[in-house]
Design a protein around this nucleic acid. Structure first.
Lengths: 117, 117
DNA sequence: AACCGGTATGTTTTTTAAAACATATTGAAT
DNA sequence: ATTCAATATGTTTTAAAAAACATACCGGTT
């Protein structure tokens, strides 16, 4: 028995991807992309996440305009009024993010073990 | 020449310490502790950081009440009206935080190299 | 050409967090 | 016992972010 602390502490970590202008994509936007993939539209993705369509649309717009290739392809009008789909570049971004997050997750656990308050 | 991306991306990371009830101490509170150490009071620390005394006081209160031993010792009344000083436990928390942050910093750089968007 | 459901975008309202303000309390020093 | 500067705490105001609302546009389908 070496430690005699009463409280239990852990290390919390948040990770995101920065583009030149700053914050580009965090877990929230990744989830949005996934919901777009599932539902086929920004409207329904937003509903599923209980966020406003406006905000969801703006996030997509921001990501698209700041990445080399758009992460979401938007379809205007037509059958069903249109929709949105995650592009190949979008899928790549999603999996990259999870890869990074996974590495961090494990490191977070290691660091928690170092706490000696 | 293997990569041909136009944009440059980096990984951003935030780290903090959780106590059982959740967020306990991040970089903001660490800086507050350091300013208290420098100035000898919550009042002056808050001024130096351009935050309201009220908020600074509440942060100290929160940290003290949730840690085993208080991180800040507050002196009420007396010479100069009183003051505040960082305890041994407080100093320990500060250096632990920086130690964790430093490890993370380096990992952040490594991960940035993995980005291939 | 009328319909439909989603995109696109401006405007207003609500919510929430932070700041600002106000005042009482404390205790050593004079 | 008065003073002083800091702690302690309640109340009000401001500011920023999110949500809500409203409406125009778009283009296959019928």
């Amino acid at each position: 028995m070496v430690k005699r602390t009463t409280k239990k502490y852990t290390v919390g970590i948040r990770i995101w991807i920065n583009e030149e202008q700053g914050h580009f994509m965090g877990i929230g936007r990744v989830r949005l992309l996934e919901h777009i993939r599932e539902t086929g539209s920004i409207t329904n993705a937003a509903k599923a996440m209980k966020m406003s369509y406006r905000q969801a649309w703006q996030m997509v717009e921001d990501m698209n305009s700041r990445s080399d290739k758009p992460l979401v392809e938007k379809i205007l009008g037509g059958k069903g009024g249109g929709g949105a789909k995650v592009t190949e570049a979008g899928e790549k971004a999603i999996s990259l993010f999870y890869k990074l997050e996974q590495k961090i997750e494990q490191i977070s656990n290691e660091l928690s073990g170092l706490i000696n308050l």
